[in-house]
């Protein structure tokens, strides 16, 4: 349980059974009155946001029961992605829905982090950069080194990514897993 006075940016709390993180925090205290703690919160599962103002007279706020573990990605089974705990080797199954776009950037045996809320995975963090081969794109315009003009391309699992015109099929590119965007060419086909 957190006291209201302990609230600050970055704290993870449980409200109505869901985990929330405080994304913005403001202390205010009108006149000689009780202190107010204004929070903007983001739901760690749905991404929904809300505003809440707590008063110094309010009772505390529940700590979110969160645990962060290191896990290795093993394999895909239908719509479920199977990982193993880096410490205990225990199997952890994470749905495509929880992974979102990140399911396209999983590499076998890559070390990821998972945030568990009451034992259930809510957020997976991948290595920031991965390298992937471009499997499908229009032939590159030779000599065009501009990086600000983009064209569509695909990687092996079908994920569509915008790449510069000079990229060819078979090139290896670096991708930022946080944004899902092209970073740079690693090697030519």
């Amino acid at each position: 349980m957190y006291n209201v006075a302990d609230l600050k940016k970055g704290l993870k709390v449980e409200i109505d059974g869901a985990p929330w993180t405080i994304t913005e925090f403001e202390f205010c205290k009108p006149g000689k009155g009780q202190a107010l703690y204004r929070c903007k919160l983001k739901n760690l599962i749905t991404g929904a946001t809300m505003d809440r103002t707590y008063r110094s007279s309010d009772k505390g706020i529940e700590k979110a029961d969160l645990d962060e573990r290191e896990i290795y990605y093993s394999y895909k089974e239908g719509d479920v992605y199977v990982f193993s705990d880096a410490e205990t080797y225990e199997e952890l199954r994470i749905s495509a829905e929880t992974l979102g776009k990140q399911k396209y950037f999983l590499l076998e045996d890559s070390l990821c982090k998972v945030l568990l809320f009451k034992g259930k995975p809510v957020e997976v963090t991948l290595p920031v950069f991965i390298e992937k081969e471009i499997t499908e794109t229009e032939p590159g315009a030779r000599g065009d080194t501009a990086t600000n003009v983009l064209k569509p391309a695909k990687i092996d699992n079908g994920y569509e990514i915008a790449v510069p015109l000079f990229i060819n099929q078979g090139d290896i590119v670096k991708i930022d897993t946080r944004t899902g965007e092209y970073v740079e060419r690693v090697s030519k086909a």
């Binding site: 205010c28 205290k29 009108p30 006149g31 009155g33 107010l36 103002t53 008063r55």
Partner: peptide, 13 residues
């Protein structure tokens, strides 16, 4: 209603 401070900062000020 224990809302003096909240109303003061959110509605009055």
């Amino acid at each position: 209603k224990n809302e003096f401070e909240i109303l003061l900062t959110e509605k009055v000020e």
